[in-house]
């Protein structure tokens, strides 16, 4: 199959970007979307042009490094990562728009590559359980009911790709933040810091310049790990509860 690509090209953070059109021929439908971009880049390299910069690493849908907005939808809207999107999802002759995540807190580094370190800072604010190496009690010391464990796991599957922010009309990172909150809040080990954690992480989220949540649900609809929207409600509940808890300071 042949496709026409319109790709956002931007030389660096301060440069002005624009959409540039490219043609790619003889694409196989079994190729992944990124392999199709590889093909384009090989073409560009051979002709001496600068290849399109895009982030990617594991290419098996788990590292969270890749991610572009395809035809207006984060990761192409297939609830998977861009690397797991295959060309069989597109028609022969398709015109495909490719843009970077767009959020003030995710500045473009080059072309389709953005800086997502804001997520790290949200985790730094409290997205952990303080447990020093070597000080842990036996793993069976605190049993965790299966339902709780499963809910923690479902939230913990977040890969930090940033699609939620890219898709949110408000540019909010609430799904990311609350996935971490929910993961840790469901486990007995997460209880001592639970209310302090939610306050600090939400404060950091806001300080990073992400928008507020208005419960539209666009984030969960594109999340490659299908993090459910209800984690945001869990965060809200914990945040409200923290107002009445001493350990929420």
């Amino acid at each position: 199959m042949n496709v026409t690509l319109r790709i956002w090209r931007q030389a660096n953070a301060s440069a002005k970007g624009q959409m540039v059109t490219y043609q790619v021929q003889d694409v196989s439908k079994d190729m992944s979307f990124l392999e199709m971009l590889d093909m384009l880049n090989e073409q560009l390299s051979v002709s001496g042009e600068e290849p399109v910069a895009f982030d990617h690493d594991c290419r098996e849908g788990i590292c969270g490094m890749c991610g572009v907005v395809i035809n207006g939808l984060a990761h192409g809207g297939a609830q998977t990562t861009t690397c797991q999107l295959h060309m069989r999802h597109f028609e022969d002759g398709a015109v495909i728009d490719i843009e970077p995540w767009r959020a003030g807190s995710f500045p473009v580094i080059k072309d389709l590559v953005v800086d997502r370190t804001a997520f790290d800072r949200i985790i730094q604010a409290g997205g952990f359980i303080s447990s020093n190496t070597g000080s842990a009690p036996d793993a069976h010391a605190a049993p965790v009911g299966k339902l709780q464990a499963d809910r923690a796991f479902d939230a913990a599957t977040c890969i930090g790709c940033g699609a939620c922010v890219a898709a949110c009309p408000n540019g909010s990172a609430m799904l990311f933040t609350s996935a971490k909150i929910t993961h840790l809040a469901m486990l007995p080990q997460g209880q001592p810091e639970r209310y302090l954690r939610v306050k600090s992480m939400v404060a950091q989220h806001d300080e990073e310049g992400f928008g507020g949540c208005t419960n539209i649900g666009e984030c969960a609809a594109v999340c490659p790990k299908q993090i459910p929207l209800d984690v945001i409600s869990q965060l809200n509940r914990d945040l409200i509860a923290s107002l009445f808890k001493k350990d929420g300071k």
Partner: peptide, 13 residues
């Protein structure tokens, strides 16, 4: 395993 459980790793249960 002890260390990871203490950190909140959601192992299957």
């Amino acid at each position: 395993i002890d260390q990871c459980v203490a950190q909140g790793v959601p192992f299957a249960r």
